[in-house]
Design a protein around this nucleic acid. Sequence first.
DNA 1: TCTGGGGTCCTAGGACCC
DNA 2: TCTGGGGTCCTAGGACCC
Length: 426
Amino acid sequence: MRVTQKQPRAGPTILHADLDAFYASVEQLLDPALRGRPIAVGGSADGGVVLAASYEAKAFGVHGGMPGWRARRLCPAIRFVGGHFREYQRLADDVMTVLHDFTPAVERISIDEAFLDVSGATHLFGPPTAIAQALRQRVRTEVGLPISVGAARTKHLAKVASQVAKPDGLVVVEPDDEHEFLAPLPVALMWGVGPVAQQRLAERGIRTIGDLAATPSSALERLLGDAVGAKLSALAHNEDPRRIVTSARARSVGAQSALGRRMPEAELVRRVLTHLADRVATRLRAKERAGRTITVRVRYTGMRAVTRSTTLGAAISSTLSLTEVAERLAWQAIGDETGPTPEITLLGISVSNLEHQGVVQLELPFQPEDPHRPGSPTGSARWVVDRTVDAVREKFGRHAVGYAPVELARGAGVPDEFRELAEHDL
DNA sequence: TCTGGGGTCCTAGGACCC
DNA sequence: TCTGGGGTCCTAGGACCC
């Protein structure tokens, strides 16, 4: 029996709004002399990486994550500009405020990008296309930044549409046009297809999303793994069950620091890990959270990285405890190296398996002194030290007290303000 | 001369339990 | 003596995203 009544299909009520070349656009907004010119935020001709490139620079092949010297080689006229990190945060927040004027159903997925579900807003602001146009106009006039928007029935389609719309454009995919829209696009535009997957697909002659849709799910699962293959197959067929999630808490917190090339000397390792643990533990305590699993990452020359992790019986958030665990794990990793001790280029700490930890029960206040480390502070002493440091910083600023940051190689390391831009809500 | 820092999720093997 | 099957947690590595 055939179903004669056509199912009512939802319209393109999911919007994906994405600021164009965000950091670079802000710099061009702040300094009119930079407008229309190829610029890179971050990096320099002899060190560091480009954090963002203006469209004028992108035309030369420059992109975020690229070493500064390569950007200079591709585009000799490029100008490296220092970042106004505080302004990035402020302006991006202003944009999100504009988005919230249209609907509370906003899912911010990074500093410069968000999904909106406008299905409940059409009676106030008109159809999704009109909302998208109004939104772009308001961001342009009130904040001064170009923003691209994709509108479609699902998150995946909306995201692909906004990428196609860039720069400074709007693409609406009507439900009846979805297949026609997706089929000719390259697989790299899809969520979850990075360089490795792209390469593997290309080896099988799969280059477009249409090719992907024509490939059996089982074949994709063999090629890319069960989960990625199945998801990709579903997305290629326009099946995307994801809803807008307005608030999501982080599942892990971490900090890492590039070091240049350094021999892993005890003093260096201890100081870097102390600094990283301080950053991570402070964030945990500020949100009354703590974690049971501690992971340390050590990167060697040639980008080879190893991790060592341990899961504790109880969650921790004390700076000293985290430092001690991290130090043990780091030496475990370094000790596992065979042959001559290699130079290290990065150290990182991550804490996962997060739990709520209210101030009252914080840090096992009655934990006895560790018999293996006579003289080291007891649980209650750690608690007092941490709370005192937190309180002083709250009053006088982060650098009023605490652990001195480590001076690293030139070009390595970025300002704290930049790190904060990438932090997720704990 | 292979380059930042914040994250998420998946896989595979092993330990351990029932 | 050696055998099944399912489930959970942990660890290490890796792909991917912004």
